[in-house]
Amino acid sequence: MIRVQNITKRFGDYAALHGIDLEIQPGEFIALLGPSGSGKTTLLRIIAGLEFQDEGHVYFDGEDVSDIPVGRRKVGFVFQQYALFRHMTVADNVAFGLNVRKSKTRPKKAEIKARADELLRIVQLDGLGGRYPGQLSGGQRQRVALARALAIEPSLLLLDEPFGALDAKVRKDLRRWLRDLHKQMGLTSIFVTHDQEEALELADRVVVMDHGRIDQVGTPEEVYMEPATAFVSHFVGETNRLPDGRHVRPHDIAIVAEGGDAVAVDNVFRKGSAWRVEGRLADSNAIIEIDVDTNQVPPSVGQTVRIEARRSRTFAD
C-alpha cells in the first residue's frame, strides 16, 4: 500500500502542494487528474523520489521512504518525453537498470538479454531490440520507456502524462493496450493526466487536483456523477452554472412544453451522438448548453424554448 501523508511543497514563494493525503491500494490503477499548475506532476515526482517534499511523508507498505533515494525506491518511472537514452539501442535501454546494478546482484549477461527480450515481447516490440530510439515512432518509444521501467521489477509504476506526446489515434490504441497490460500484470500504477477522458477510461480511481489540493478521490463514476466541488463538476465533464448557483450537466436539462425558464436559442449543431443547443437565459443572459437526443427534433435558431433541470447540484463556495 502507498500512503502519502500531509505532503507540502513550495517552489520559492509558490506553494505547489498543500498538505496532500492519499492512500493507494495494491494493484490499483490511479489517475492524478488536474489542469496544469494543479501540482499533479509534483506529487508524482515526490512519490518517485525525484523531488523532495518540504513537509510530510511517503510510505511504501508502511515504510517511510522519504529519505530513500529514487534509485532504491523500486519505482518504475515513465517520463513524459520518455527520456530514452538516444545513444543506446532499444535493448540496451531496457537492460540499463539491470546493467548498472552492483556486480553482486547483477544478473548474468545472458540473463539480462533474455529479460530484455521478454520485456520487449510484452510491450510488443519483439525484434526491434537492435534499433535506436530515433528510429522508432512515438508510440513505440512510449512502449520502450515502459519496458525499461518494468525491467527493474518495480513495486510501483509511475507515468507522467503517458500519452501527452502522441497523436489522437495512437493515443487511443495505446490507452486500451495499457489498460489490458495493467489488468494482466496487476502492478500498482499512478499516472498523471490533464485529460479527463483518459482518466475516466483507464483509472480504477481518479484523484482530481486543483491549486495544489485534492478536490476529490473516487471511482470514475463517482467523480462524474457526484462531483464534490464546483471545480470537479466543471473539469470532469461539462457543466452549466445557473444564476441561482445550481450546476447542471447539459444532458440533465430537458426541454419542456410549459413552466421552467425561457432560453433563446443561438446555435444548434451536432456534437457526437447528441444535438448541442446553445442559448441564453431570457432573465439573466447567462449562456446555457443543452444536449438533445438525436432521435428528437432539435429547436431551431432564434426560437425560444423552455427548460427544466432534471438533476442539479449546489456546492458550498
Binding site: A48, G49, L50, P69, V70, G71, R72, V75, G76, F77, F79, Q81, A83, F85, F96, G97, V100, R101, R148, A149, A151, I152
Partner: peptide, 12 residues
Amino acid sequence: DDEEAALSLGAN
C-alpha cells in the same frame, strides 16, 4: 530527464 531516468533505474 535522462539523468533522472537513469537514477530511477538504480544507477549511481
